[in-house]
Design a protein around this nucleic acid. Structure first.
Lengths: 216, 216
DNA sequence: ATTACGTTCTAGCATCCATTGGAATGAATT
DNA sequence: AATTCATTCCAATGGATGCTAGAACGTAAT
């Protein structure tokens, strides 16, 4: 019985390794980016606004905790989440943070579109409308991310191309834009642009990870 | 657009607050203990094998992250999880750790009962058997924890009293013992004792938190 | 009043972490 | 051979964290 403490300490210490990995904002951002699909270090560094070297160091931590895997592809090294459960954990932890942390709620309110423009509570009815063609679900992420995974019935127009490709969208139906998730600003910007141009646009906070985690 | 980075940094930083809280083994242990029900600081300190003062400091961190709540009750202050989602997060993070970390798998194998003695994959059939009375589901945690919550059809015999109360258990049926979860050694000890005394005993790794998280 | 329970403050110690920079190395493409 | 992508090593900085300890303080039961 005397060794019980030692064993327990060992067990909790191992779980805490996962917690440690989740304790860095930059690593969380990298995880969220990897939820969108495989990416190279360069891409991750650019999209997370940090140096390649620091990105490499953070990815190393993620790799040591077996949360991500790597694969060489020509000159590049591609990173991906080791398992869907990692994406689920990201969704769960950021959802819990949004529920519990008032500071986060306030910060999110600042970037939010008008509350009226939010879609979210009823995934099923959204899908039903999308299936019937009553709404257009619009994926404004970069094309590669759309190709890696996207919501059912979603069309792809990357935010960068949106202004030139407005003609592809109907003005007589609601357009529901989404991006990487609630901390990504692309959909917010897309909605702002669309409304300004006379479209009826709504904002879906979910990304593919949130959507997948909810449909289980 | 220039301020986008700042906003994002702020958002991920908030989520990282939750990660930070989960990065300490002792805090994880406290969370697991609180999954068993409300507890006083003294109790938590004793059961986590740390000083009251350090316990207080860790609980403070948990409180600042809104993961736990307190309530004064006479001389004592009782802590409880702020929400069921905190218990769910604990289950998810330790489950993911068990999936991804080989070191944790190895450590768990050391304390495991014989693999034959493990129950787990099929909660439904276990419950069906328990309902029919074909097996006895035995909760070996302290009485207060049993009273706070327990598995369906479970009987309570705290590990400390088990040896004296063996007569209450049938020898012609399987006894499935559980405790606080996979990192708690009480059920392992109970199974060892029961088998030694001629009972057919099995070990259920789940605790009430794991069970609740799975039935959603 | 005394006691028990718990928090807070101060202080100190050791440790780890994030970040940056420079330099070197490896692996694969061109 | 030169270039690109990525990791690694070294070093240094600043800051945060875990733990311990002593003392003071607040709250409520007895």
């Amino acid at each position: 019985m005397k060794g019980a403490r030692k064993i327990k300490d060992l067990l909790y210490e191992q779980v805490a390794r996962i917690g440690k990995v989740l304790s860095s904002p930059k690593r969380l951002e990298l995880i969220e980016l990897l939820c969108q699909g495989e990416k190279t270090v360069e891409t991750l560094a650019r999209e997370a606004s940090i140096s390649v070297k620091l990105t490499s160091a953070h990815l190393r931590e993620l790799r040591l905790a077996s949360l991500v895997e790597t694969e060489r592809q020509g000159k590049n090294i591609r990173y991906r989440l080791a398992d869907k459960s990692v994406a689920d954990l990201w969704v769960q932890i950021h959802t819990l943070a949004e529920e519990r942390l008032i500071e986060l709620q306030l910060a999110l309110r600042k970037i939010a579109t008008q509350p009226d423009d939010l879609v979210g509570n009823d995934r099923e009815s959204l899908m039903k409308a999308a299936r019937k063609g009553e709404v257009v679900v619009l994926d404004v992420r970069p094309t590669e991310e759309y190709l890696a995974a996207h919501l059912p019935f979603a069309r792809s127009i990357p935010l960068e191309e949106l202004r030139q490709r407005l003609a592809e969208l109907p003005k007589d139906r609601a357009i529901v834009a989404y991006c990487r998730g609630p901390y990504c600003l692309m959909a917010v910007n897309a909605v702002a642009l669309l409304k300004q141009e006379g479209y009826s646009a709504l904002h879906l906070r979910d990304g593919v990870a949130e959507w997948a985690a909810a449909s289980e």
